[in-house]
Computed example of a mutant assay.
Amino acid sequence: MGKATGELSFQAQLKGNHCFGCGTENPHGLHIQSFWAAGDTASCQFIPQAHHCAAPTHFLNGGIIATVIDCHCICTAMADAYRRAGRGIGQGEAIWFATGSLSLKYLRPVLINADIVLEAHISAVEARTTHLVCNLIADGKTAVEAKLTAVRVPEQWMSAKA
């Protein structure tokens, strides 16, 4: 699915998203693109750039790894909420989620030039929360396992002053 079918990513359908990891409106961001794979699972390919490196320049920085997992999961939760509401992503009143919790288990280093795929699966949905599990797969092997709880926030959250 995705680019081959002409389908728009979750992120391309969201308006007003300036997030570093997933925001299409952040010119300096990572610009990840997530798509439904099957059922309650979404997939994302990520191509790191050289400046996303760790201290050893042949490995991907752990913070970048956490960011792409976080953003892929949050966008999956939002896409699911729109789907459950019977609307296209970005249609009608905006639906936003924020990270309530994120736990990562780094199993192996990720080479900076690896083919990276993220697979997020919705494991449970409650009134205002969505629970997801996500694997970051590098060169065909699971390198990071994650669990994330996404919390729905009011639309005004996007315009609130700190």
Rank of each mutant, 00 (worst) to 15 (best):
F10R: 10
A12Q: 15
K15Y: 08
G16A: 06
H18L: 13
C19A: 11
C19I: 08
G21D: 11
G21A: 03
G21T: 04
G23D: 08
G23V: 08
N26M: 09
P27E: 12
L30A: 06
H31Q: 13
I32Y: 05
I32Q: 01
I32S: 04
S34R: 03
F35H: 11
W36Q: 12
A38P: 00
D40S: 14
A42K: 09
A42M: 13
F46I: 07
F46K: 03
F46D: 00
F46M: 01
Q49K: 15
A50F: 13
H51T: 02
C53V: 03
C53W: 10
C53F: 00
A54V: 06
H58A: 01
H58Q: 15
H58L: 10
H58I: 05
F59Q: 12
N61L: 07
G62Y: 11
G62C: 09
G63T: 07
G63Q: 11
I64T: 12
I64H: 03
A66W: 01
V68W: 05
V68L: 13
V68C: 01
I69P: 01
I69R: 10
D70G: 07
D70Y: 01
C71S: 09
H72N: 15
I74N: 06
C75T: 13
T76S: 15
T76R: 11
T76V: 07
A77G: 10
A79M: 01
A79K: 06
D80R: 15
A81F: 08
A81N: 02
A81W: 02
R84C: 02
R84E: 08
A85I: 10
G86H: 12
G86L: 10
G88C: 00
I89D: 03
Q91E: 15
Q91F: 09
A94C: 08
A94N: 05
I95Y: 12
I95W: 12
F97Y: 15
A98C: 03
L102D: 08
S103E: 14
S103K: 10
S103P: 00
L104A: 00
K105D: 14
L107M: 09
L107Y: 07
R108Q: 10
P109I: 07
P109T: 08
V110I: 14
V110M: 05
I112D: 02
I112C: 05
A114T: 08
A114I: 10
D115Y: 03
V117W: 14
E119T: 04
E119Y: 09
H121V: 11
S123D: 12
S123Q: 14
A124R: 15
V125L: 02
V125R: 12
V125M: 04
E126V: 04
E126Y: 13
E126F: 14
A127M: 02
A127W: 05
A127V: 11
T130S: 14
L132S: 01
V133D: 15
C134N: 12
C134F: 06
N135Y: 01
L136S: 03
I137F: 10
A138M: 08
G140S: 05
G140Y: 11
K141I: 11
A143M: 09
A143S: 15
A143T: 06
E145N: 12
E145R: 13
A146F: 07
A146D: 05
